[in-house]
């Protein structure tokens, strides 16, 4: 009896140890790099700002109130103000536009690459990734140099005689949008490519044989197969672009803020860390809502087939 227990127990312990041992790195990484920072941001968002940066340890919801209201300087009463909502909306809008544009460019691109021969496929994929060997900051500044008034693009357009004065290509929302699409395009192309790659084109032939129209074939056959790639790509583009900092900063000429820039100024010029933390929590919430919505949508669709 005891001998048996002694025989069995080491096995049990080691199994439990193995379980904890295997779990530990993942839990550690998540705790150190995700839970702890988010917890700090969460706590700071409910504190009062110190005079020139930093926080005073008093509970306050002013950081959140400030997003929707501003205090009147004379009597301190709260008045509704849409200033920050406009910035948040602009970020969501720009990110959504960027996602749609990336989709429109990526679907044909990914389809093209997936239908190449096995020999040339890796070359196309390689070409997609080449620009991303260069740092994003440098690529963004390079894009500015191409777009600006005396840049090669405007010079070329003016040489054709279509216009005598340079087109406003830089320092505006167009430039920001272009910068976002340029930055995040491969995050859409690659998941779509892997979805197309798995696609069995005989299914499409079968559909046509059974008198499916192009429309029906696309929605009933192609789209369901593509869905995981579409969702993954959209999330990979939407989430980083909503918090994007560089494109509005450099290509927008600092003239319009997006939420990333607004958060940045709270920790630099404006000296209001709790407000910056509150904005970060809002951004996190928006991102989570989009994620959950997407996840639930895809789960529902998947059960349909």
């Amino acid at each position: 009896m005891t001998a048996q227990a002694e025989l069995r127990s080491p096995f049990r312990v080691s199994k439990r140890l193995a379980f904890t041992g295997l779990l530990l790195p993942a839990v550690g990484v998540i705790t150190i790099f995700m839970i702890a920072p988010v917890a700090i941001v969460f706590v700071y968002s409910f504190l009062e700002p110190a005079r020139y940066g930093g926080v005073v340890w008093n509970f306050s919801v002013e950081g959140y109130l400030q997003i929707l209201f501003e205090r009147d300087f004379v009597d301190g009463s709260l008045q509704f103000s849409a200033d920050y909502l406009v910035i948040l909306w602009r970020s969501v809008f720009q990110a959504a536009i960027c996602t749609v544009l990336c989709l429109m460019i990526s679907v044909p691109t990914a389809y093209f690459i997936a239908t190449r021969s096995e020999r040339t496929k890796p070359i196309w994929i390689f070409l997609i990734t080449v620009p991303y060997w260069v740092n994003l900051l440098i690529r963004t500044i390079a894009l500015l140099f191409i777009l600006r008034d005396d840049g090669p693009l405007n010079k070329a357009i003016m040489m054709t005689g279509l216009t005598t004065s340079p087109l406003p290509l830089s320092y505006n929302n167009f430039a920001i949008g272009l910068g976002l699409v340029y930055s995040f395009l491969p995050f859409m192309v690659l998941p779509l490519y892997s979805a197309f790659e798995r696609f069995d084109f005989r299914l499409l032939e079968a559909a046509y044989d059974l008198y499916a129209s192009r429309r029906v074939a696309f929605f009933k056959i192609v789209l369901p197969v593509m869905r995981p790639g579409l969702i993954a790509g959209s999330l990979l583009v939407f989430i980083p672009s909503i918090g994007s900092y560089l494109a509005p900063d450099i290509l927008g000429g600092g003239k319009t803020l997006m939420i990333g820039n607004l958060i940045g100024t709270q920790f630099q010029g404006a000296h209001n860390w709790p407000f910056g933390a509150a904005l970060s929590m809002i951004l996190l919430t928006v991102t989570l809502i989009v994620l959950i919505w997407m996840a639930r949508r895809s789960a529902r669709k998947n059960t349909g087939y």
């Binding site: 300087f73 200033d83 920050y84 406009v86 600092g254 100024t265 010029g269």
Partner: peptide, 20 residues
């Protein structure tokens, strides 16, 4: 010199509205 918290807040509000 450094400005008071009241004017710093006003400045910040002007700046945010300007770049809005």
């Amino acid at each position: 010199p450094n400005c008071s918290p009241a004017s710093t807040k006003l400045y910040d509000r002007v700046w945010t509205k300007l770049l809005n």
